[in-house]
Design a protein around this nucleic acid. Structure first.
Lengths: 116, 116
DNA sequence: TCGTCATATCATTATCCACTGATACGTTAG
DNA sequence: CTAACGTATCAGTGGATAATGATATGACGA
């Protein structure tokens, strides 16, 4: 078994880092609330502010982050900017997480590691 | 539209928190490495240490966390404890994330918000 | 019974990351 | 052209979370 064969069994470190980044990106309640607002369709920043209850600069900053990593897309319409999910698999990933939460990962309710 | 109707359009705050916790739980490179080691099947703590290169107390602590939230399960075999993924949907969630990374969320490579 | 091995626990420390408030920027209407 | 509206930017502050090293605990073998 060559070194390459050994390595084939391991995930490349940067692939692991990318996964971690994606999950960390989704690990923020504010960004999840924003994505949840977008599951229903295209929305403006103000509509998202109203939907989530978050502050406008906060929403704008998170949207910039989500846009940069490619989870959402945007188009301008005069002074309004409308955001949407870039791919329906974003919603699918969140639904897959929900199914796991409902069936297996039931201990998160009384998790002591993460604050509520 | 009653208050209840309004609420129906919003995700319950604690449902959002649970999602955030699950994703934060997966947002750690060490825990992802551990889960990746378990995708291949049941392993002992030492095997996971060898596979991931992480310290033994570190692996043990993360396994405790994963066990508590329900993502992995364990069985004792003498002085050895063997861990495995509690549900194949854990691996499916990770694969769904990988597909998103490969196709849409391509900006995470040069993400400035999260360290590498 | 005791030493060894495998695993678990925890305090300390260091690092990571989100929100606010003020304000800048672009578009629109009068 | 200017004020108002919608959105974007950012420094400062505060809170969250992971790894280490030492050590405790339980099982096993001689």
């Amino acid at each position: 078994m060559t070194t390459q064969d050994v390595q084939d069994d391991l995930l490349a470190p940067d692939a692991l880092e990318l996964r971690a980044k994606l999950f960390r990106g989704l690990g923020d309640p504010s960004r999840l609330a924003i994505l949840d607002a977008l599951v229903a369709g295209e929305r403006s920043v103000q509509e998202i502010v109203a939907h989530t209850g978050l502050g406008q600069p906060n929403v704008s900053n998170h949207l910039r982050c989500l846009l940069h990593c490619g989870l959402v897309s945007r188009r301008s319409e005069g002074r309004f900017v409308r955001y949407r999910l870039a791919d329906r698999r974003v919603a699918e990933l969140i639904r897959a997480a929900d199914r796991l939460l409902a069936s297996t990962a039931t201990g998160l309710g009384d998790c002591e590691r993460y604050t509520e």
